[in-house]
């Protein structure tokens, strides 16, 4: 089976620090792929390389059979790579609804009719159910900058989904969420249509093991292990890596 996304031999350096040193990653269509590792392992950097916001020193990124290495983040998003950021990124002065509308706009097509504003109305139609799914209906008219941290994260997830992703990059979606919100998030990820592949970075390993079918472990910018959740859970190598990373 070919990869929907494949990153090959990706290296990123920050000065003398190798944030990524020759990482390979393959995400299949519809896969639930988790990326774990201690702080500073390079997980966010790898998501940035895949999303196009960081240009690697070496290596290529292929998506859906095409080399997208030279494309910027916007072009990759239009091809179906959508993401949420480790620190929730939302449009602070726009209402929650408008945030989702903006995120949906690149992927809605113009409705028939000559009256202007058709695309925006189509995007609005998509925003309602997504906000509902994330439990944000009550705050739909509140500027995103006034939302609580957990709500902002939920909002960014709604925005990522509004872009009709084929690959969803989630950078610690559960960080800072309440127990209820984490439950809703898990439910949502489980209910995602099978056409959507997910690359999930998450420190909450209970979530990782519950949601993913493949786990890749990064450490110091290298792939330490990859396999099914059960193999990873019991791997002494991985335990050791985390124990070192924590100290």
């Amino acid at each position: 089976m070919t990869c929907l996304l494949s990153a090959q031999d990706v290296s990123v350096r920050y000065g003398s620090l190798a944030a990524l040193a020759g990482v390979d990653l393959c995400v299949h269509d519809g896969q639930r792929h988790a990326l774990i590792g201690p702080n500073g392992a390079g997980k966010t950097t790898l998501l940035n390389v895949i999303g196009g916001s960081t240009k690697p020193h070496r290596g290529t990124v292929r998506f859906n059979g095409r080399d997208v290495s030279r494309l910027g983040p916007a072009a990759r998003a239009r091809r179906g790579i959508n993401r949420i950021h480790q620190r929730p990124a939302v449009f602070a002065t726009l209402t929650a609804t408008d945030n989702v509308v903006v995120a949906a706009l690149p992927r809605v097509t113009r409705r028939r009719g000559w009256w202007p504003g058709g695309r925006r109305r189509a995007a609005q139609h998509r925003a309602g159910p997504l906000l509902d799914q994330m439990g944000l209906t009550d705050v739909a008219a509140v500027p995103a900058g006034h939302l609580a941290h957990g709500q902002r994260r939920q909002l960014e997830i709604a925005m990522a989904l509004a872009g009709r992703p084929r690959l969803l990059l989630l950078d610690e979606p559960a960080a800072g969420l309440s127990a209820t919100e984490v439950g809703r998030l898990a439910e949502l990820l489980r209910a995602l249509p099978r056409e959507v592949a997910v690359l999930l970075v998450e420190h909450r390993l209970d979530l990782v093991y519950a949601l993913s079918d493949t786990v890749t472990v990064l450490r110091d910018g290298r792939t330490l292990a990859a396999g099914a959740p059960d193999e990873i859970r019991t791997s002494p190598l991985v335990r050791q890596a985390y124990a070192d990373g924590m100290s």
Binding site: G72, V101, R120
Partner: peptide
């Protein structure tokens, strides 16, 4: 009040996010 105005305000708030959503900023 159009889509154009909305996108301009969104870009002022967070340009990186707007690009990540696929807009040609």
């Amino acid at each position: 009040r159009t889509r154009f105005g909305l996108l301009l305000r969104a870009g002022r708030d967070d340009e990186t996010r707007l690009r990540a959503s696929g807009h040609r900023v």
